[in-house]
C-alpha cells in the first residue's frame, strides 16, 4: 500500500513532550519532516485554523482541550472536516475506540506502538 507523499504537513498533538518527540522521530524515520507540534487540542485548533495541514496525529487525554473534543471540532468545521486524524492514545478500552470512531477519527493506535504500526495506519488512512 502506498504511503502519503513525504512533503505532507503533519500536526502532532500531545501534552507530553517526550511523546511528541517519539512521534516526530518515527515520522522522520518514515521520511516525513514537515512536522509541527501542539500541546493540547486548543493550541492545535488554533494552528489548524491559521495554517494548512494534511494530517493530524493526536493524543486523547490532554489539558485545556482533549483529543476527542479536538476531533469533534475538526469535523464540525467546514474548512477542516475532511482532514485525516489518527488518534494515538493509552485509552485501550473497546468503548474508547468506538467513541473515538463516532467522533470521526480515521484510525486509532494504542500506546506504546511501533514504527511499523504507525506506517500501517498511515497507509490505511491515505490509501
Amino acid at each position: 500500500m502506498p504511503m502519503p507523499p513525504p512533503d505532507i504537513k503533519i500536526l502532532v498533538v500531545d501534552d507530553m513532550s517526550t511523546m511528541r518527540r517519539i512521534i516526530r522521530t518515527i515520522l522522520n524515520q518514515l521520511g516525513y519532516s514537515n512536522i509541527e507540534e501542539a500541546e493540547n487540542g486548543k493550541q492545535a485548533l488554533a494552528k489548524l485554523k491559521s495554517e494548512k495541514f494534511d494530517f493530524v496525529i493526536t493524543d486523547w487525554n490532554m489539558p485545556e482541550m482533549d483529543g476527542l473534543t479536538l476531533v469533534k471540532e475538526i469535523r464540525n468545521d467546514p474548512e477542516l472536516k475532511h482532514l485525516p486524524v489518527l488518534m494515538v492514545t493509552a485509552e485501550a478500552k473497546k468503548e474508547n475506540v468506538i467513541e473515538a470512531l463516532k467522533a470521526g477519527v480515521n484510525n486509532y493506535i494504542v500506546k506504546p506502538f511501533t514504527p511499523e504500526v504507525l506506517k500501517e495506519k498511515m497507509e490505511k488512512i491515505f490509501k
Binding site: M16, T18, T25, K111, F113
Partner: peptide, 16 residues
Amino acid sequence: ILELYTHLSFHDLAGQ
C-alpha cells in the same frame, strides 16, 4: 535504537 526510542513512551503512560 528506534525500538528503544519508542519504548520511552513509558514516560507518557506512567505520567497518565
